[in-house]
Design a protein around this nucleic acid. Structure first.
Length: 590
RNA sequence: GGGCGUAUAGCUCAGUUGGAUAGAGCGUCGGCCUCCGGAGCCGAAGGCCGCAGGUUCGAAUCCUGCUACGCCCA
């Protein structure tokens, strides 16, 4: 549809130029951006513009009259347009010709997997998300960030951005020391089951209580044996490295169940070891933006719009997380990224101004740093919110959730709504228990259905996929068929809009709308099927119509698959009926 | 007290960047399986777009002020 919109814009701007040269319109008419929209009502045509309503004042004319002059000045008839009408207060409505639809359909088939993908625009984007501390299991809020981030990466890549996804691993701070001590304590407990005489190390006061630390300790004991515990002297480097690797593996495995992977895992420790933190602070110091007070070192972030100055080095000599974050974001820019996008939980929103302040202080445009704040996810059980504090005992991990409902269902749930609205996940209704209420399955089902038709065409009837250039597409006469073509033609601009809004739910909403059109067609025209019935006589069958419809079904399948892929969801060719399966999630790769 | 976000059908949410008559799903009610996959489809009921002003040809959308909820910071 971008293609046809551009075509209409050219027609209009040529007409405007003509009117300006005849002194009917002022020069300023050429500067206005021409916006072509899709009207809500079908009787208003396929595309429309309110340009004349907007221009009426400066043109000193009433909108309808202006519209009439504009239409008269357009080079019509045009092969892409079946009609051009002036309507209402001064809208110009365009109806697409059959040729425009057929060209569009052919373009989709020709593009295949490339439909909805744009040429590179040469913009390097760093997209950082999740970045949870490697000290325990992910919670459900992390899941939302992960799903949104991964889908956004796919969509922005399709829109032509050069995207690198990144996980910032906080492996340097106090939390990791605590995890190390917690592992040591649990390890001694585990070993004491065999060697009752040894002394158990106490769990630190703020240590990690979760049962997973004991699992970790058992793995440690299995790998390194009981000697360290028996000796009573911990090898902290070894324990730390083991704990980090174990926790990171656990996190990545959970993410992988949701089909989320990262291009880069960036270590905070390495940031320090490579001197990046010292580097960033020295740049700030050179610029006179650091000062000392009560033994701590402050950054003058108030000079850049923050509400108060922030500590970068504590009186103990330790760097704050903020100091690492400054260095990290500076490093991203120095690695050549044009745009930095971070996905954070909404509770961190207060952190945004200080990071922007730091980047500005370091001489960069703060608008290159963008933060997507993702609102909270709460769990609901029996109509009541479930408290999810780690201490409350009914902490539900992301892994638990996916084990219950399946990775792609969880993923769909997270991206199907805009990120700036709080979500309730109802455990009791549980999307897995009634897949009919599940739009992800609905979309996949549409794909499987189309795949099934194509399969019967090639396998049962022994025919090959027709070349769209050799098929008479005018056999697609039903209004539903034409509506679906227009819908499919919209994918590229949906991708563009979703990427620009930084919001994957745009693609999700589009996908469901498109599949609904197909399902509606499918059920309504069961007595006028795509394929010949077994009972019918092949000689009397309208093969030309079947061929046109097969091209159309194939295009639908392609566009559906492309949209599912953009969201990181599988596009299965077969799906099992839910009645026969308990809660197993189909996960076929096409 | 300051800041960020949200407010649209009984419930969960869309709303193409200010356009024409407000859109889905779930739930409710009523229909559709000799038929390419019923995980489906068709129809009906359901609305003061939180409230009050403002901007203009035109507002769910933009501006101001309230109210309620969530979250940050004091």
């Amino acid at each position: 549809m971008l293609h046809t919109k551009a075509h209409i814009k050219r027609l209009i701007s040529r007409a405007l130029e003509k009117l300006v040269s005849q002194n009917i319109l002022p020069e300023s008419a050429l500067e206005r951006e021409i916006h072509i929209g899709e009207p809500k009502f079908k009787d208003h045509g396929d595309l429309s513009t309110s340009l004349c309503l907007q221009m009426a004042k400066e043109a000193r004319s009433n909108p309808r009259q202006l519209a009439q002059r504009l239409v008269d000045a357009m080079e019509l008839p045009d092969s892409m347009l079946a009609s051009v009408e002036i309507a209402g207060p001064g809208f110009i409505n365009f109806r697409l010709s059959d040729k425009a639809l057929h060209d569009g359909l052919r373009r989709i088939v020709r593009a295949g997997d490339g439909w909805g993908r744009f040429e590179s625009r040469g913009v390097k984007v760093n997209l950082e998300f999740v970045s949870a501390n490697p000290t325990g299991p992910l919670h459900i809020g992390h899941g939302r960030g992960a799903a949104v981030g991964d889908a956004l990466a796919r969509i922005m890549r399709a829109a032509g951005y050069d995207v690198t996804t990144e996980y910032y691993l906080n492996d340097a701070g106090r939390q990791v020391r605590l995890l190390t001590e917690s592992l040591w304590a649990r390890y001694t407990e585990v070993v004491r089951e065999q060697y009752p005489e040894i002394e158990v190390a106490a769990l630190p006061e703020d240590g990690y209580q979760g049962a997973y630390v004991t699992d970790m300790a058992r793995d440690f004991a299995r790998q390194y044996g009981p000697d360290m515990a028996r000796s009573g002297s911990p090898d902290r480097d070894l324990l730390r490295a083991f704990a980090l690797r174990w926790a990171t593996d656990m996190i990545m495995s959970t993410l992988s169940d949701m089909n989320v992977k990262f291009d880069v895992v960036y270590s905070e420790k390495k940031l320090h070891d490579d001197g990046k933190v010292a580097h960033a602070l020295s740049v700030l110091r050179e610029r006179g933006l650091l000062y000392e007070q009560d033994g701590a070192v402050y950054f003058r972030s108030t000079e850049f719009g923050d509400e108060k100055d922030r500590v970068v080095i504590r009186s103990t000599g330790e760097h704050t997380y903020f100091a690492s974050d400054i260095a990290y974001h500076l490093d991203k820019l120095e690695r050549g990224f044009d745009v930095l996008i971070d996905i954070w939980g909404a509770d961190h929103h207060g952190y945004v101004p200080r990071v922007k302040a730091a980047l500005e202080a370091l001489g960069h445009d703060p608008d290159r740093f963008q933060v997507l704040l993702v609102q909270f996810v709460s769990l609901v059980r029996a109509g009541e919110k479930v408290s999810m504090g780690k201490r409350s005992g009914n902490f539900v991990t992301l892994q638990d959730l996916m084990d219950t409902v399946g990775g792609d269902v969880a993923r769909w749930f997270f991206i199907s709504k805009t990120h700036d609205v709080a979500l309730d996940f109802d455990l009791e209704k549980g999307m897995s228990e009634d897949p009919r209420e599940n739009p992800a399955r609905y979309a996949q089902y549409g794909h499987a259905r189309a795949a099934s038709i194509l399969r019967r065409w090639s396998e049962d009837l022994g025919r090959s996929l027709p070349d769209p250039d050799g098929v008479d597409l005018s056999r697609l006469e039903l209004p539903e068929e034409q509506e679906l073509i227009k819908m499919m033609m919209r994918l590229p601009e949906v991708v563009k809009s979703s990427a620009e809004k930084r919001n994957p739910h745009v693609v999700a909403a589009y996908l469901v709308d498109m599949v609904r059109l197909f399902q509606s067609y499918y059920t309504q025209y069961k007595n006028d099927p795509v394929l010949p019935r077994a009972s019918s006589d092949p000689a009397s069958w309208n093969w030309a119509k079947s061929e046109a419809r097969i091209v159309w079904v194939n295009a639908f399948r392609t566009v559906t698959r492309n949209a599912l892929t953009l969201l990181g969801l599988p596009a299965p060719d077969y799906m099992k009926a839910p009645e026969n399966e308990s809660d197993e999630t189909p996960n076929e790769k096409n």
